[in-house]
């Protein structure tokens, strides 16, 4: 790889298909940096990151899982609903690329789902059914510790190679940096504290989704979209809105009042 060239076409997707565009990537990093303000919302940050990772890598969808203190992965964010279900499927059956990636601490890349039945007898057919052909997973790492995994799903058999692999790993590293909220974290205690806070924020959001779904007679995904749009339009943090919905619905009447 020529060190002076940065991202080159031949480092991109195999078979001469698309590569990660430098301009697009630059925009992603700028937007992610913008998200990392003082009081940023970790869930929104991870959702943004999952969405952008899917876009720049030309993968159809991306999902993100974090390890809880018991070493169990938990769902945190995804770019699309179909991937959320596949992430949950992996967690339920304790099988799939994210689990392997987390256990080994190494990326799992370019796995053709049509040839993965032996490796993941439950997950591979399920992901194929959902319309995906290939899958990748990248570890979220903090020093020697793996704290989660970033999962990519493609609808074609496009391969991630060379620079693409490094870029997606860099995005996974950005996720870790965002979670830690500081570049040089002092000790593992702070890491544990931050991870726990992020995991609990996700729980608050699920509780709020359930509450809003019942308030408006809609499904939980519509409830999430409603809450996210409201938070954005009011310039509130998603987690704060979710917390308000659960603890004091009258604090967000525009969102919670039954129509």
């Amino acid at each position: 790889m020529n060190s002076d060239a940065g991202i080159r076409p031949e480092d991109g997707w195999g078979g001469g298909t698309a590569m990660i565009a430098v301009e697009q990537l630059a925009e992603v990093f700028v937007e992610l940096a913008d998200t990392l303000v003082d009081e940023f919302d970790v869930i929104e940050f991870l959702e943004t990151l999952a969405t952008h990772t899917a876009t720049v890598s030309a993968a159809a969808s991306a999902g993100l899982l974090l390890a809880d203190p018991h070493g169990q992965l938990q769902y945190m964010a995804s770019s699309t609903e179909s991937v959320k279900l596949l992430e949950l499927f992996q967690l339920q059956y304790q099988e799939g690329p994210c689990l392997d990636c987390y256990r080994m601490g190494e990326p799992v890349i370019n796995t053709d789902l049509n040839e993965a039945d032996d490796r993941w007898p439950l997950f591979a057919p399920r992901a194929s059914e959902a319309g995906f052909q290939s899958v990748h997973a990248f570890p979220l790492r903090h020093r020697s510790k793996v704290i989660g995994a970033l999962n990519l799903f493609s609808r074609d058999a496009g391969r991630l190679e060379g620079t693409d692999v490094r870029i997606v790993q860099a995005l996974a590293d950005v996720a870790t940096i965002g979670l830690l909220q500081e570049r040089a974290i002092r000790n593992s205690e702070v890491l544990t504290e931050q991870l726990q806070a992020a995991l609990n924020s996700r729980i608050v959001i699920e509780q709020a989704k359930g509450a809003l779904a019942r308030m408006h007679g809609i499904d939980v995904d519509a409830a999430f979209a409603l809450m996210r749009d409201y938070a954005r339009s009011k310039n509130h943090r998603l987690s704060d809105v979710a917390h308000g919905v659960v603890t004091d619905p009258s604090s967000h009447e525009d969102l919670t009042a039954r129509r």
Binding site: Q72, Q74, Y75, L88, F89, L91, Q92, Y93, I203, E206, Q207, A208, K209, G210, A211, L212, A213, R214, M215, V220, V245, V246
Partner: peptide
Amino acid sequence: DVLAYRVEVYQAQGMVMVD
């Protein structure tokens, strides 16, 4: 039971709260 269902457990908590 299995962790994957926990997302649903939390959603159900929000639903019962409103119900």
